[in-house]
Every structure is written in structure tokens, then in C-alpha cells.
Design a protein around this nucleic acid. Structure first.
Length: 910
DNA sequence: ATCCTCCCCTAC
DNA sequence: TAAGGTAGGGGAGGAT
């Protein structure tokens, strides 16, 4: 997995080679080069689908134990028990056994329908669990007990874990909703009642969401059929697409001759079934029977049955109105990114101690007796998809979207035999094929990766209670204070179990800190382990190339190279002061420390989520102004995506940043099909006083930000929306939901906004566009922050609300009754009269803000001038002034298109 | 000195 | 054809 980024950035640098030559050279060296073409040799005697076998075994065991159910209350229910529960997980398992349900030993969203969990003591945990559950209901064990007592399946909604359920308090986002739209609470409540959660992690939505979500209470699925379907999925994935007759035979022989490694005897009793299933699957009609090792013959037809595969027809913003959704379903980098984040959230803190960080500082870190194990799966994507193809173990294999020998699809993962040909992750498939014409290409199988990753973490947690996830296939374990006598033995045991369970190999590094453990894994790969004792650290580091250090990428490597520094030994010769002068305080210190093997990071250090966003930088094309509304649609969909992601984490954000990739002037067509090519990266942001996850608010903000770019849509090659200053939903509800504080903060800000043009806050962007900073909003938000910190009642601070004319009528109309009454009181009862006559004002000025993005704007000017002419005149003159300023600043796009969007008008105000 | 925005770099 | 995402850290430079 570590190769992906290097290669993908390398490809992108192909587009930018004139500007950033160093990127290309810096990316030439990878781990694969260093370790050459070692083909993975298993320490265990078997290969193949032991994972499938083991799962089958567990399920068979469960079925054997299950009594015949007179009343299968839990038919279709499959639980995973998370952590300590009352009653115990074994008791819950018994209930499942006796009443027709299923019990899963490993968490998999593919199989599990409900997560059972007792109340969580630590407030932070709930968000991690929410993210981890990704839409699956997290329910208290009493749901099971009560269902049994009632002799029927009760709805789980009332049993949902309290900390995870939204409370019904009104929230600010409802202020911004239009009258006819549902509040987010409504949506969530409906979701609860309808069983199928509306909110889900985007990665969870791929293909399996139907299975995972719909097999809840109401849609009962016969347990046995569910399992067999999954087994089919696992075994049949890709096989009919790639296997040849010859290979079919070889697989059959292999399976006959060799049993899976550990537990061989236990497994053998199910083998006949397993074997026949394999054969059944392999005998599916296959249109491709050529040898995978013969050049152009091995055209792989990607299985159309793979559920993760969206329509092939649509691959750009020009042809697909749902491009955003479809894109994320197929993006490997999206999966890598979301998994990384998911697993980090899922296991943020050790199971035995919440404050392990502090205890570590006082003991292991200082005493120098730490024992850290770094575990990393070998060429993860390839390993997973060739588990069922032992005959391909020593053949060059890669995972890629396309097998087109002339194409620009990127190789995502290459096994070691492929690497011996110089094939690297990130390389175009045409280049890879040029290096190795008989390279076997497999398509992605995201579901399988997820399943293996879940198993990987289940194993790690069974062996260690201090696990820090790095990504879906990589983690650190701190075994310092466990009862482990020999970390090397433990590492060996873990790797063995990973192999036996998943059919994939893992490597491990063992050392006294995370840095050295990670470096040790580099030596261990593939399929090995390596221990670096403290006395051997210096020796090991001295010849190590600097880019082996985490944090040293191609740019830093190139800069250091210019100083004749290529190894850690050479780096060590430079003083800390000098490094800090050249590379900044933090980076300099990091280099100084790492070159000496010093690393003070702690396994399990908790990291709060700081930002959430979504980018699309592929397939983005808008031909001309006719596509403007398509661009708007794109932005809308992006906001939906971000809103969903925020909600799935239980977060709301205050700062919104829109990134645009703009084709660089005179840039050639990108080498990569539908790529973004050589671009300028532009970004604008805005901060609002109170956090939101509401999609309509996001859309308004995004459109305003978009307008501030003054960009010709033809030039856009990528768009990203990011939300930061995140606040936990519950925390923010408790601490900040105070209407007066919001109103009065708004007032303070509006005082500054009264003279927007004379504040001197506008500045010039690199691209010449004018940026109007939201000094008003930022000022108020800072004020609010300080207020919260001081535990001071914000209602006591300022007593003057903003003028009525600054409030958005639509927002006011949608306030909950009690909130409206409160606000009306603040305005001395004038609010009622204001909203009854002010509808036209709101719509008109809002339209003006959003300029051409708001289609209905055109016909509203008469209304606008009829009502409150003074106010509107002022606003119009401001906008005219800004337009003038934009023209002066060269902000008119090449097409002569001018936007009038302005971020100073915050969403909650006119 | 501190905070902010914009942007780059990095890892997976 | 093809799916070049995600998130954290940090530096530069400007505002206060």
C-alpha cells in the first residue's frame, strides 16, 4: 500500500514535469527496487482460500450448535458483539443460536446486521463507534433479552446506544432549511423507524450496502442463504474472469493435494463441500480462457457481476449527472483514504486503558524498554485477489482498472514478481505492459479488501490491546507492558494467523519505537520479519536512504540531495539548527531526530478528526457555458457527499473550503485519460459562527465560494470541498446552542460588515482573482470561541441583535416555534410583521449573492426594488463595487464571464 | 506573539 | 479509455 501514493504522485508529476522536474526523479526509487524480485515464499505450507474455509467452518459450527427453532425470532439478524457486554457475548451467542439468529466472531459489514454494545463510558468513543459502524445499528444487549422475553423481534430503534442516537434538540442547521424540506432530525428519526439507516459511510455503500442494511429487522433473509451467497462472492470473485482451463485443473489439483495450513484436520471435513463449490464457481461460463501468461491473449474480461462496478457508460461530468457518486464507487484512492480513516477511528484507544498515552510517556518511552511491532500486509491488493490462484504466486500480477495495453489506467498494486520487471504502483498500465507483456491484470475487489482488513484487525486485537491503525493493511502494536516475553515470537504468531485466516502474507518489524519498527518492516518484506535491537539502530540507519524515513518524500529528498545528503548517516552530520533553518522548525527537528532513530510518538496516541472533505480531480470537464448548470449540479452532489460524511462521523463544521483545480494556461492535454493535467490549485474558504452538517447550508456556502473564484467553467479540472473546525454534534449542542449568542455574535459581525469596502481586507490571489475575506464572520466566530473557553454566558455579552433586514426570511420562517418566539421577543415582537411582508426581499437578495448560480435571480429585480429600497440599493452598490474591483484585479475569466458571488454574505444572513 | 488563510508536502 | 482521494502537518505571509 505504501507504494500507491508514490506512484500516483509520480503520474501526476508527468503532467507537471516542466514545473516540477524533481517529482519524476524522486519517484524512481521505491521499496520494491531495494528488495528486488524476491518471490514470496510462505513459511506455511498452504496457499489458497483458507479464509473462506475458516469462515465456513465457523458458520457450520454455529449451525451445528443451533437448535431447531420453534420461533426463529432473530431470523435475518446477525450480531457482532463489541467489547464487554452484560450479558456476556457468549450468552448473546446462545440466544442467537437458540432463536434463529447469527453470531459473528469477526466484524464484517458484509455479514453483520447489528452491532451489540453496552453504554460507552468515554464520550469520544461514540464517534469512533459511529464511524466504525458506518450506518449499521449499534444496539444495547437488552434488545436481545427483551425480544426473547417478548417472544418476537422488537424494533431495535429504542435500544440504540444513547450516545449514538441524535437527541431531538433543535439545531442551527434547521434554521437554514427551506420550509418544505425535512429537518435533519426528521430524517434521522425516520431512518430509525424505517430500520434502514439513511446515514452511511460512502465506502459502505459500495455494492454491499443492500446486503448489510436491508437484512435488518424487516427484511428477513434466510441465514443459510445469506452465508452461502457470501461464500460464493468470496470464492467466485474474478475467477470466471481470468482463469483458464489449465488453471482450473491446477487449482483443483492444488486443493486436493494440500490442505490449508493450521487447523488442517478440522478443515478437512468441510473440504468436499468447499471443493465442489470451487469447482462450481470455476465452471461458470467464461469468455476468457486464454493463458494469463501469454501476451495479448490474456485479455481479462472484468466480471460484470461484481456489485461494486457502476455503469461503464459514464465516466465524466459531461455524460453522467451522477458522476460524483459513481466516481467514488470506483476510486481506489478514495477507498484507501476512507479505510485509513475508518480503521484509525475504529481502534483509537487501547481496550484496557483510555489514557494509555500518559502512562507510556512515563514508562516505556523514557525507560527505553519499549517493544513495538509494526505489521504490514504484503502488496495487499494483489495478495487478496490472487488468494485463490496459487498458480499465480510466482507470476507477475498487478491490480488495475483496465487491461488495455495502450491505456493510461494506473497500476494500483504489483506483486514482487511484477516488481522485478520494474513495475510499480501508480504506473500506467501501458508502461507496465511494455515492461512485462505477460503481466496478469486483476480488477479491484474492494469488498474482499475490506473483509481481509477486518480480519487483519480482529487478529491484531486478539493478540494485543494497544493497536494503532495506520491503514487498512498496516498497524503498530505496543507490547511493552503486555505479558509478551518475546515480541519476535508474537510477531511470528500473528503473521501466521493472518496468513491462515486471510490467505495473505504480512511482514513485521520489531523495535523499540515506531520509527525503527517501521524501518525494520522494510527490511522484512516480503513475508518476513526483522528485529532491530537498540544497539543495532545506528548501524542500520547509517546507510539507509533518507527517503526511507517517514516524512521524507520526493521534494524533501530532492532538497537534501542538493546538499549532498542521501543517507541517514549523512543527514546525521548536519546540525539541528542548520536543518531547522533550511526546512523549518518542526521539519528540521524531525529530520534531526529521525536520522538518529529518535521517535517520541506513542502507539495509540489519540487523534481527533480535524477535517472532512471530498475531492474529485478526474473526469471533470465542462465544455462551455451551457454546462454551467451541470457544474452547479456537480457542486450540489459534492455537498451531499460531504454532508453525508460529516453526519456519519457525528460532526458539524464551521470552516468550509472549496478547492478548484484550474487548467494551467497553455497546459497540454493531460497524458492521463480524463486526468486533471497541469493545474493551478486555488482555494477559498469561509468560516461561519456555528457548525453545521446540513446539506442545504453546505450548498449555499459552496455556491458562494464557487462564485468568488470568477472562473470559466471550461478551465475546471477538479473540485474539492473540505470542512474543518469540526465540532462533535452532542458537544456543540450542549455548549453552543444558545440563540442569543448566535444572534448577538451576528450583530457584532454585522457592525464590521457595514463598511465592507473600506476595511482593506480584500486581497489579491495568485491567479489575480480578488478575495474578500469574511472578516465579519471570522471576527464573530473568534469571539464565540473565546466565550466558550471562558465559560461565560454569551447572552450576557452583547445585547444588540443585528438589524432585521440582515436576517434571512426563509431561515426565520423555518425556526422551531419556541426558537422563533424567543427571537421575536428579542426583536420586540417585530419579527412577525417582518417575515409576513419580507419574503420577496429574502429571495431576491439571496439570489444576488449567488449570482448566476441562482437561476431564479433574473426575474426578481422588480420585487427587490419594491421592498426596502434603501437596503437593496446599498447591497446592489456593494456588489457593483465588487464587480468593478474584480475587473480591475483581472478577475474576469478568459471567457469574459464574471461572477458576482461574495463570501461576506454568510448563509444565515442576507 | 498569535492567529488566520492559502498552499504544499506526505502517507496510505 | 478510466475512476489522480483523504487527512494531517507545517510553512509563508499577512492581520491583529
Amino acid at each position: 500500500m505504501s507504494l500507491n501514493s508514490k506512484r500516483s504522485s509520480s503520474n501526476r508529476s508527468n503532467d507537471n514535469n516542466k514545473r516540477k522536474k524533481q517529482k519524476i526523479t524522486a519517484n524512481q526509487k521505491t521499496l520494491g527496487v531495494v528488495w528486488g524480485s524476491n518471490s514470496p515464499k510462505s513459511p506455511f505450507s498452504d496457499v489458497g482460500s483458507y479464509m473462506t474455509e475458516k469462515n465456513r467452518k465457523l458458520h457450520n459450527q454455529f449451525n451445528a450448535e443451533a437448535t431447531s427453532h420453534n420461533n426463529p425470532i432473530f431470523a435475518g439478524v446477525s450480531i457482532f458483539v463489541d467489547g464487554f457486554t452484560v450479558p456476556s457475548s457468549q450468552e448473546l451467542r446462545s440466544y442467537m443460536l437458540n432463536y434463529g439468529g447469527r453470531f459473528e466472531n469477526y466484524f464484517s459489514r458484509h455479514r453483520v446486521t447489528h452491532i451489540i454494545c453496552t453504554n460507552l463510558p468515554h464520550s469520544k468513543l461514540k464517534n469512533h463507534l459511529r464511524a466504525f459502524s458506518a450506518g449499521l445499528p449499534v444496539v444495547k444487549p437488552t434488545w436481545i433479552l427483551d425480544s426473547v422475553a417478548s417472544n418476537r423481534l422488537l424494533t431495535w430503534a429504542p435500544y440504540q446506544l444513547e450516545q449514538l442516537s441524535n437527541n431531538q434538540q433543535p439545531k442551527l442547521s434547521t434554521f437554514f432549511l427551506s420550509r418544505n424540506s425535512k429537518s435533519s432530525e426528521d430524517t434521522f428519526t425516520n431512518a430509525l423507524c424505517q430500520v434502514e439507516p439513511v446515514i452511511h459511510d460512502s465506502s459502505a455503500s459500495v455494492g454491499k450496502s443492500e446486503d448489510g442494511h436491508s437484512s435488518g429487522v424487516e427484511k428477513v433473509v434466510e441465514p443459510s442463504s445469506q452465508i452461502s451467497m457470501e461464500a460464493d462472492d468470496t470464492v467466485s470473485e474474478n475467477t470466471d474472469a481470468i482463469m483458464t482451463d489449465e488453471q482450473l485443473t491446477s487449482v483443483g489439483v492444488k486443493c486436493d493435494e494440500e490442505d490449508p495450513a493450521g487447523g488442517r484436520n478440522d478443515a478437512s471435513k468441510d473440504e468436499r463441500n468447499f471443493q465442489s463449490e470451487l469447482e462450481t464457481n470455476y465452471q461458470k461460463p467464461s469468455t476468457s480462457v486464454s493463458s494469463p501468461c501469454s501476451d495479448d491473449q490474456n485479455v481479462i474480461e472484468f466480471p460484470s457481476s461484481v456489485s461494486t462496478r457502476p455503469s461503464k457508460q459514464c465516466h465524466s461530468t459531461l455524460s453522467d449527472p451522477n458522476f460524483v457518486e459513481n466516481y467514488f464507487k470506483s476510486s481506489r484512492l478514495h477507498f484507501i483514504g476512507t479505510w485509513r480513516s475508518r480503521y484509525r477511528k475504529r481502534f483509537p484507544i487501547s481496550s484496557t486503558g483510555v489514557d494509555n498515552g500518559i502512562s507510556n510517556i512515563n514508562t516505556s518511552s523514557v525507560s527505553g524498554n519499549s517493544a513495538i511491532i509494526h505489521v504490514d500486509m504484503d502488496c495487499f491488493f494483489v495478495s487478496v485477489v490472487i488468494r485463490n490462484h496459487p498458480e499465480l504466486l510466482d507470476k507477475p500480477v498487478a491490480v488495475c482498472h483496465s487491461n488495455n495495453s495502450k491505456g493510461t489506467a494506473e497500476v494500483s498494486s504489483a506483486n514482487y514478481p511484477a516488481r522485478s520487471y520494474g513495475i510499480r504502483a501508480g504506473m500506467f498500465v501501458r508502461d507496465a505492459k511494455a515492461l512485462c507483456p505477460h503481466l496478469v491484470i486483476f480488477p479491484y475487489n474492494f469488498e474482499a479488501y475490506e473483509e481481509v482488513a477486518d480480519q487483519f484487525y480482529s487478529i491484531l486485537h486478539r493478540h494485543c490491546n494497544k493497536v494503532q491503525a495506520v491503514s487498512c493493511d498496516e498497524a503498530f502494536l505496543d507490547v511493552t507492558h503486555s505479558n509478551v516475553e518475546d515480541p519476535e515470537l508474537l510477531a511470528s504468531s500473528i503473521r501466521k494467523e493472518i496468513y491462515e485466516t486471510t490467505g495473505c502474507t504480512a511482514s513485521a518489524g520489531i523495535a523499540g519505537n515506531m520509527l525503527i519498527a517501521r524501518i525494520a518492516t522494510r527490511t522484512a518484506k516480503p513475508n518476513g520479519q526483522y528485529h532491530i535491537s537498540p544497539e543495532r539502530v545506528q548501524n542500520h540507519l547509517s546507510q539507509l536512504p533518507i527517503n526511507a524515513l517517514p516524512g521524507v518524500g520526493h521534494v524533501l529528498q530532492e532538497k537534501l540531495k542538493k546538499q549532498n545528503v542521501q543517507t541517514c548517516g549523512q543527514l546525521m552530520m548536519i546540525s539541528k539548527v542548520s536543518l531547522q533553518n533550511d526546512y523549518g522548525m518542526k521539519t528540521g527537528e524531525m529530520l534531526w531526530n529521525y536520522s538518529r532513530g529518535i521517535d517520541n510518538r506513542l502507539v495509540g496516541d489519540f487523534q481527533e478528526c480535524k477535517s472532512i472533505g471530498a475531492d474529485v480531480n478526474w473526469g471533470v470537464r465542462f465544455k462551455d457555458m451551457k454546462d454551467f448548470f451541470q457544474c452547479e449540479n456537480f457542486l450540489t452532489k459534492l455537498c451531499k457527499e460531504v454532508s453525508l460524511r460529516l453526519r456519519s462521523c457525528g460532526m458539524q463544521g464551521r470552516t468550509f473550503s472549496l478547492k478548484i483545480k484550474k487548467r494551467r494556461k497553455d497546459a497540454d492535454e493531460p497524458a492521463k485519460f480524463m486526468g486533471c493535467g497541469d493545474c493551478e490549485n486555488l482555494s477559498h474558504s469561509v468560516t461561519i459562527p456555528v457548525g453545521t452538517d446540513n446539506v442545504e447550508v453546505l450548498q449555499r456556502i459552496a455556491k458562494q465560494l464557487f462564485g468568488s473564484f470568477y472562473i470559466d467553467v471550461k478551465e475546471i479540472r477538479g473540485i474539492g470541498l473540505h470542512v474543518s473546525r469540526l465540532e462533535n454534534i452532542e458537544t456543540s449542542k450542549q455548549e453552543k446552542f444558545n440563540l442569543k449568542s448566535w444572534v448577538t455574535s451576528g450583530s457584532a459581525s454585522m457592525d464590521k460588515q457595514k463598511h465592507p469596502m473600506s476595511n482593506g481586507h480584500d486581497k489579491q490571489n495568485m491567479d489575480g482573482t480578488s478575495v474578500h475575506e469574511c472578516r465579519d464572520l471570522r471576527g464573530s466566530s473568534v469571539q464565540m470561541d473565546n466565550n466558550i473557553q471562558n465559560n461565560q454566558s454569551s447572552a450576557d455579552r452583547i445585547s444588540t441583535p443585528p438589524p432585521l433586514c440582515h436576517l434571512d426570511v426563509e431561515v426565520i420562517r423555518n425556526l422551531p416555534t419556541e426558537v422563533f418566539s424567543e427571537l421575536n421577543e428579542i426583536y420586540g415582537g417585530k419579527l412577525v410583521a417582518y417575515i409576513t411582508k419580507g419574503k420577496s426581499i429574502s429571495e431576491s437578495s439571496s439570489s444576488l449573492q449567488n449570482s448566476l448560480l441562482e437561476k431564479e435571480a433574473i426575474n426578481k429585480e422588480e420585487e427587490l426594488l419594491d421592498v426596502e429600497p434603501i437596503l437593496q440599493k446599498r447591497k446592489l452598490s456593494e456588489i457593483e463595487a465588487m464587480q468593478h474591483e474584480a475587473v480591475e484585479g483581472g478577475a474576469v475569466s478568459d471567457s469574459g464571464f464574471l461572477h458576482t458571488g461574495d463570501r461576506r454574505f454568510a448563509p444565515m444572513l442576507l
